[in-house]
Nucleic acid binder design. Structure first.
Length: 500
RNA sequence: GGUUUCUUGGCCGAGCGGUUAGGCACAGGUCUGCAAAACCUGCUACAGCGGUUCGAAUCCGCUAGAAACCUCCA
């Protein structure tokens, strides 16, 4: 087995990589901020949730029992004009708010499945946890860290910062003095004592339609409260990992921490993980200025930003070639490179898995054995180092060279010991399929055998033609298959084929 | 305006003080009936200018670009 090695995680709280130690040995509680279901899933969401999917999968690979909670936000986010985001969508489409939420929740789940992400252990909805949120507002009020103003309740940031030194700002690195000096004109400040204060309960206006009864007013919970309430409910007051996109650091996560402290006096999560943005043309995607591309547009190729279509697994591979904490720029050229790399890796794995055991049963290691074992170890060392999937993939390429040489008989079978080959098979399959979550969409996977049966026949006919040096027929078959999207590869051991 | 981060070869992208990451593209070669695939070889970069150090892509400072956040955002 792999040598015992610490798992290191970059913690936004310290700004450093730290050795991961869960609160309860063997168990991990992880909360990730989920999507707001008021429109179709954004590609950036897909990157974030793919990143956390790999993190979730790798924690499980390391033997942890993980409770992965990812919420669905279906209420509580304000739009620029102060309207509730869900109700705004509802009015535009002439639908019930919950109908809007339902539609986009289903769409979100479909997309997550397309990207082969595992479902979380619990997926709580904000609207399903209004009592919990009201209870939390009560706790914060009881602790004197919030105040009621005209039916709304605001979190008292300056008082909190005074009471809990060095807490406010610990997630985002923001300094409260800077917030005091905020020059920007903020809206609806009249009810707040201080610009940095934020609503934890909002009194409804007549036009709001998603409203609940509370001790303070008929209204709805504040923007950040749901995550505090739901993480506490399902993972406890203090848990291991809290994740989300980089753009949620401030104010969302900062306020979340403040609320948890304010309610129970304890710190919510030990490790805060933030994924970086997906860029298009070097900039964050934005619907308003047209700098955006949807997952579906990538799958169909129907976008001015790409010259062709890209499969979901190519997208997933593309994302995993970069580290989750780095920005990743989508360009057509980069996607094409990723597509070729992805196919190469998938072909390599297929070759590896189908490789017969070598006859070399000696326990001594050859140079090639050592190189293979080193590559496997490098791959997992990368994963242990803050989930460095780019490093893991690079190590897989290293390994593929040795295996391909073996398959081509460019090195002798005696160079690779049977046990080493066996370990390569299980390790790489585990890494590729279970940890990185890459499915092989280039093969006949899912085919009922019809295609492979046909291909066996066609390639047999072609082999006959070639035996007779009938190159015309041979090439005709090859070209026709190529047109149909099937690549024929003549190797020493016979002919193989693949889609794509 | 404030806060933070980033700038790596034709392109994408690792790197966290001392070993040419890796992929794509390109060029040459091996193999092949010819291709493709695979394999081998070549392309050896770290925005600029200083500083610290025996040694810096990596640490510090300045300059120039860029991005994110400060407002719903993954």
């Amino acid at each position: 087995m792999n040598p015992p090695r610490d798992l290191k995680i970059y913690n936004s709280l310290s700004g450093k990589k730290e050795v991961f130690n869960p609160i309860t040995p063997g168990h991990v509680g992880m909360y990730v901020c989920g999507p707001t279901v008021y429109s179709d899933v954004h590609l950036g969401n897909c990157r974030t949730f793919t990143s956390f999917d790999v993190i979730y999968r790798y924690l499980r690979h390391r033997g942890y029992k993980v409770r992965y909670v990812r919420n669905i936000t279906d209420v509580g986010h304000l739009t620029d004009d102060g309207e509730d985001r869900m109700s705004k969508g509802a009015k535009v489409a002439q639908l019930e708010p919950m109908e809007v939420a339902q539609r986009y929740t289903v769409g979100f789940h479909d997309m997550m499945r397309i990207f082969n992400t595992l479902p979380p252990s619990i997926e709580p909805r904000a609207t399903g946890h209004i009592p919990e949120q009201i209870a939390m507002v009560k706790d914060i009020l009881a602790n004197g860290l919030a105040y009621e103003s005209n039916g709304s309740v605001y979190f008292n940031v300056p008082k909190f910062a005074e009471q809990y030194k060095d807490v406010y700002g610990s997630v985002s690195g923001r300094i409260l003095d800077d917030l005091y000096n905020e020059t920007r004109e903020l809206k609806s400040q009249e009810e707040k004592n201080h610009p940095a204060d934020f609503a934890i309960w909002m009194k409804a206006r007549p036009e709001d339609i998603m409203v609940w009864e509370s001790p303070w007013s008929l209204g709805f919970p504040g923007w950040h409260l749901e995550c505090s309430a739901m993480s506490t409910k399902y993972l406890g007051k203090s848990f291991d990992i809290h994740g989300g996109g980089n753009d949620l650091k401030f104010p969302h996560h900062e306020n979340e921490v403040a609320q948890n402290h304010g309610a129970c006096g304890c710190h919510p999560a030990n490790y805060w993980m933030h994924t970086n943005m997906l860029l298009l043309n070097g900039k964050k995607m934005s619907k308003s200025d047209g700098n955006t591309i949807t997952p579906v547009e990538l799958f169909t190729g129907d976008s001015p930003f790409v010259t062709k279509s890209y499969s979901p697994m190519v997208l997933r591979f593309f994302m995993l070639q970069a580290h989750y904490r780095s920005t990743l720029d989508i360009t057509d050229e980069a996607l094409q490179a990723a597509e070729k790399g992805y196919r190469k890796v998938m072909e390599f794995n297929k070759l590896l898995q189908n490789m017969p055991a070598t006859a070399t049963t000696s326990t001594s290691e050859t140079d090639t054995d050592r190189a293979i074992l080193q590559a496997i170890d490098d791959a997992f060392a990368g994963m242990d180092d803050d989930f460095n999937t780019a490093m893991a993939i690079a190590a897989i390429y290293d390994l593929s060279g040795h295996i391909n040489k073996l398959a081509n008989q460019q090195i002798d079978a005696s160079e690779v010991s049977a046990w080493v080959l066996e370990r390569a098979k299980t390790s790489i399959n585990d890494l590729l399929i279970n940890v990185l979550g890459l499915l092989d969409d280039t093969s006949s996977a899912g085919d009922d055998g019809t295609l492979s049966g046909l291909m066996d026949l066609i390639l047999q006919l072609r082999a006959n033609a070639r035996a007779n040096k009938d190159w015309g027929t041979s090439d005709q078959i090859r070209d026709a298959l190529n047109t149909a999207g099937i690549v024929v590869k003549d190797g020493k051991e016979g002919t193989t084929w693949s889609k794509g």
